[in-house]
Design a protein around this nucleic acid. Structure first.
Length: 235
DNA sequence: GCGACAG
DNA sequence: ATCTTGTCGC
């Protein structure tokens, strides 16, 4: 398999990366309701890292939104394209994730990202970034509240509460399992918050995290091990 | 200036 | 994200 290289002109500093976000941010589309939950396809994307070797593996797993059956999978392995900096996560994940999406043999439908979309210091997180670059509808489902505040949703599955940046609702804390820590949903591109939350709930009938991200997480980890595991075994 | 901070 | 064994529970 070929290695995804860092694209020409890719930001090399935090300053350049922030400038790129400020420029792309205007292309986010927020006035579409998005695809109806439970219909069509939903694709989970995730990445795993070996920072020691500067290697990143990405996976994209396409599910039938109604049955959650796996319809297609693809992976890509690349060079780590940016260090982890809160607020600049996309620059670390985007090139390899794009390659994985490109390798799919069918339309991804709605893309579910591990992280945030509009809930971001400059309102342009990973999910929005990926949406603008692909034109696909995207949402972000994160495991932590990042810098935002929220009140604990009620205990029952399906309960929600606003995720706040000061007075602004930038996303929602969504209880996908009764009594279990919520996930944090935000809009990426071409999807409204209500449907973003409904999709998240529909994707998590049994576990805290959406089935899409669980599948993508397992696949990219396995891909990373298989890629690095041979040249990198301790002797 | 200090601390916090998606993955 | 990643480092890591066993353990409690359905």
């Amino acid at each position: 398999m070929t290695i995804v290289r860092i694209p020409a002109g890719w930001p090399a500093s935090e300053e350049e990366a922030r400038a790129a976000q400020d420029e792309l941010r205007g292309r986010v589309v927020l006035d579409e309701p998005g695809p109806p939950p439970g219909t069509g396809r939903v694709t989970g994307v995730d990445v795993a890292y070996d920072d020691e070797r500067g290697v990143v593996a990405a996976a994209a797993v396409v599910l039938d939104a109604a049955t959650l059956d796996v319809l297609a999978e693809a992976t890509a392995v690349g060079e780590v394209s940016f260090p982890y900096v809160p607020g600049l996560l996309a620059f670390r994940e985007v090139p390899t994730v794009l390659a994985a999406l490109d390798a799919l043999d069918r339309d991804p439908g709605l893309v579910v990202c591990d992280g945030y979309g509009l809930a971001h210091p400059r309102r342009f997180g990973l999910a929005s970034h990926l949406g603008v670059l692909t034109g696909l509808p995207t949402i972000g489902v994160a495991k932590n509240p990042f810098t935002f505040t929220y009140e604990e949703p009620d205990r029952p599955r399906g309960s929600t509460s606003p995720l706040l940046a000061g007075p602004d609702e930038v996303g929602r804390a969504v209880r996908t399992q009764a009594g279990v820590k919520p996930v944090f949903v935000s809009v990426g591109h071409r999807v409204g918050l209500d449907r973003a939350c409904a999709h998240t709930l529909a994707l998590a009938p049994r576990y805290r995290l959406p089935e899409s991200t669980r599948r993508a997480d397992a696949l990219c980890r396995r891909t990373l091990k298989e890629t690095v595991g041979r040249a990198g075994a301790p002797s």
